[in-house]
């Protein structure tokens, strides 16, 4: 029985000690904690350094998504670029796992350190492209997919991408 009483007292003492430690609780929302840039919160679509939308509608984010909350449709612009005609994320399903960002070959889709996405109406958690697209490059400043891809677009002809030789003249007989 003494053993039991001792245990109780030790417990109370340990808890009382915490009265004098620094509090981890912050006065959210007046006071906001620091979140690292790589924190996985609200998803955005970014633009490349030239200011064009980065997303090429390749569908890899959608297929990587474990809760299948991304849906989009590809279309082609006049200048030859692929782009999403619509891009929809159902944030009421999203688990912020970041698989879409990992899958993205163009660094278009990125997770941001913003998690404040409370809504009274669940329907408002469905974000369309106009809600997702931002004007900046996000975390990755320099990458421009079309500068490394072989497809020609307006302003970047065949052979002008990184590591590419000028187009072959098929009529030439030179070695």
């Amino acid at each position: 029985m003494w053993e039991a009483i001792r245990s109780q007292l030790v417990t109370m003492w340990t808890i009382l000690q915490h009265t004098f430690t620094r509090s981890e609780t912050v006065q959210y929302p007046e006071e906001k904690p620091y979140l690292a840039p790589r924190y996985r919160g609200r998803i955005v679509l970014t633009c490349d350094p030239d200011g064009e939308e980065r997303c090429v509608a390749c569908n890899l984010c959608a297929v990587a998504c474990p809760v299948d909350c991304i849906a989009l449709q590809q279309a082609t612009k006049e200048d030859g670029r692929w782009y999403p005609e619509f891009f929809r994320i159902n944030f009421s399903r999203c688990i912020m796992c970041g698989m879409c960002e990992e899958a993205c070959p163009t660094n278009a889709i990125q997770l941001t350190p913003d998690f404040e996405m409370c809504e009274y109406d669940r329907q408002s958690m469905v974000y369309e492209k106009e809600h997702l697209q931002i004007a900046g490059t996000g975390k990755y400043h320099d990458y421009n997919y079309y500068r490394v891809a072989g497809m020609a677009i307006a302003g970047k002809d065949k052979g002008e991408a990184k590591n590419e030789a000028p187009p072959i003249d098929v009529k030439s007989l030179m070695p």
């Binding site: 998504c65 399903r93 669940r122 469905v126």
Partner: peptide
């Protein structure tokens, strides 16, 4: 690996 099941028609209704 059919994708987008929970977003395809979420613009019509999230349910």
């Amino acid at each position: 690996r059919y994708s987008g099941r929970t977003a395809m028609r979420a613009n019509i209704s999230v349910h």
